[in-house]
Amino acid sequence: ESETFDVELTKNVQGLGITIAGYIGDKKLEPSGIFVKSITKSSAVEHDGRIQIGDQIIAVDGTNLQGFTNQQAVEVLRHTGQTVLLTLMRRG
């Protein structure tokens, strides 16, 4: 069981404050995608409180990250504006 949710964030001096990890899993058993690996102290993400380590980032400002490499996803996140809309999925 999984839930998908949107989080809109405004960057602070730390930026968004997440590091991400790309993961290619076994299609049947484990998900592939871009996941939140860590959250920086005092960052926008930590202050917001809704995003957790292990959440999958589905889209950034409407750009679907399906099939993106870790590096491609980093580039998408790097080129966002001051306000960012993240679409995430959390597995229950």
Rank of each mutant, 00 (worst) to 15 (best):
I18N: 00
L9T: 01
G22R: 15
T63Y: 09
G81N: 09
T4H: 06
L88N: 01
V60I: 14
F35V: 07
N70V: 15
R91W: 08
S42G: 13
Q52H: 11
T40P: 05
F68Q: 07
S32Y: 10
S42V: 06
T69M: 04
G92A: 14
D48R: 07
Q72R: 09
L65H: 01
E1M: 14
N64P: 14
T63W: 03
G22E: 15
L16V: 05
I39G: 04
D61V: 00
S43G: 14
L9E: 02
I51D: 00
S2M: 15
I34T: 05
N12Q: 09
G49M: 01
H47Q: 13
L29K: 14
M89P: 02
D26H: 13
G81M: 02
I53P: 12
N12A: 09
I18W: 04
I53V: 14
S2C: 10
L77T: 03
R50K: 09
F68I: 09
F35L: 07
A59P: 01
L77A: 00
A73E: 01
G54Q: 02
I20D: 05
T19P: 04
S43L: 08
T10V: 10
R90S: 01
I51K: 01
D48S: 08
I53F: 02
S32T: 15
N70Y: 15
G67H: 11
S42Y: 12
D61P: 00
T10D: 07
T4R: 07
M89E: 10
Q14M: 15
G67S: 10
A21C: 12
E1K: 13
D61H: 03
Q66W: 07
G17R: 03
K11Q: 09
I51T: 01
T63D: 06
L29Q: 14
V74H: 13
V7Q: 00
A44M: 12
E75C: 06
Y23L: 11
T69R: 04
D26W: 08
R90A: 03
T69Y: 03
L88S: 02
R90K: 05
L88Q: 04
Q56E: 10
R50T: 07
N70W: 12
A21Y: 10
D55L: 00
S42W: 12
T63N: 11
G17H: 04
V84N: 03
N12V: 05
A59S: 12
R90L: 00
G15R: 08
S2L: 12
G33C: 04
E46Y: 14
K27E: 12
Q52M: 10
D26E: 12
